[in-house]
Simulated scan of single mutants.
Amino acid sequence: MRSLLEHEPQVRAFLRGLLPSWNDVDEVLQEASLVAWRKFPEFQQGTAFGGWFLTIARFEALKYRRRIARTPLVFADDVWDLLAVEASEAETQPMYRQHLEKCLAKMPADKRDLLLKVHSAGVVMRDIAIQSGKREQAFYKVIQRLRATLIECISKSISIENV
């Protein structure tokens, strides 16, 4: 139990890199914890518990992804692999999350709310596009630009901190 609790923040950060919302992260983390608990007798003492738990979490995230595969927010397999590699660099995750929160706070409220809305569980972007009065393709472009702006802000913020 102590090992699960000790590695939970690292696994939570890893999962946030793979999943679209914190609700998804909570759901997958809970399932991964249950699987780890059941499989604990299989864990080889002397090996890295964190890596073992991250592997379980990754497989649980993939299972979760298959369940939600019909939503337009699901990434292709190659993108998942890339996200998994990047997300496994756990030491950068708390810093990245901190910069993400700062950059989200800097965005105009309407744009931030729109971006967060499309990344909420169970949301269909087509429905939000219709509600906003935009054509679907135009709406996707707006979201793409907002994401690019957010990524640029995070990159600049991190590079400034590392100077």
Rank of each mutant, 00 (worst) to 15 (best):
residue 3 S to Q: 12
residue 3 S to I: 06
residue 3 S to P: 04
residue 6 E to A: 14
residue 7 H to T: 12
residue 8 E to F: 09
residue 9 P to H: 13
residue 9 P to K: 12
residue 11 V to A: 06
residue 13 A to M: 06
residue 14 F to Y: 15
residue 14 F to E: 03
residue 17 G to S: 07
residue 18 L to Q: 11
residue 20 P to F: 08
residue 25 V to D: 09
residue 26 D to S: 15
residue 28 V to P: 04
residue 30 Q to A: 15
residue 32 A to M: 12
residue 32 A to T: 08
residue 33 S to G: 15
residue 34 L to R: 12
residue 37 W to E: 08
residue 39 K to E: 15
residue 40 F to V: 07
residue 40 F to D: 06
residue 43 F to Y: 15
residue 45 Q to T: 10
residue 46 G to Q: 13
residue 47 T to P: 04
residue 51 G to N: 14
residue 54 L to F: 03
residue 55 T to F: 11
residue 57 A to K: 09
residue 59 F to S: 08
residue 59 F to K: 07
residue 60 E to H: 04
residue 63 K to I: 08
residue 66 R to Q: 14
residue 67 R to G: 11
residue 69 A to F: 05
residue 74 V to A: 07
residue 75 F to H: 12
residue 77 D to A: 12
residue 81 D to L: 14
residue 81 D to I: 12
residue 82 L to A: 14
residue 83 L to H: 09
residue 83 L to S: 11
residue 83 L to W: 06
residue 83 L to N: 14
residue 85 V to M: 11
residue 85 V to H: 11
residue 87 A to L: 05
residue 88 S to R: 04
residue 90 A to G: 07
residue 91 E to L: 10
residue 94 P to W: 11
residue 100 L to W: 11
residue 101 E to T: 13
residue 102 K to V: 11
residue 103 C to L: 04
residue 107 M to V: 02
residue 108 P to D: 09
residue 110 D to E: 08
residue 113 D to V: 08
residue 113 D to K: 13
residue 114 L to I: 05
residue 118 V to T: 01
residue 118 V to C: 00
residue 119 H to V: 03
residue 122 G to L: 05
residue 123 V to R: 03
residue 123 V to H: 00
residue 123 V to I: 15
residue 124 V to P: 00
residue 127 D to M: 05
residue 128 I to A: 01
residue 128 I to S: 00
residue 132 S to M: 10
residue 133 G to A: 02
residue 135 R to M: 06
residue 136 E to G: 02
residue 136 E to K: 05
residue 137 Q to D: 11
residue 140 Y to Q: 03
residue 141 K to T: 10
residue 142 V to S: 01
residue 143 I to R: 01
residue 144 Q to A: 07
residue 146 L to Y: 00
residue 147 R to A: 02
residue 147 R to V: 02
residue 149 T to M: 07
residue 149 T to R: 11
residue 151 I to H: 00
residue 151 I to V: 07
residue 153 C to G: 02
residue 156 K to I: 04
residue 157 S to G: 04
residue 161 E to N: 10
residue 163 V to T: 10
residue 163 V to N: 12
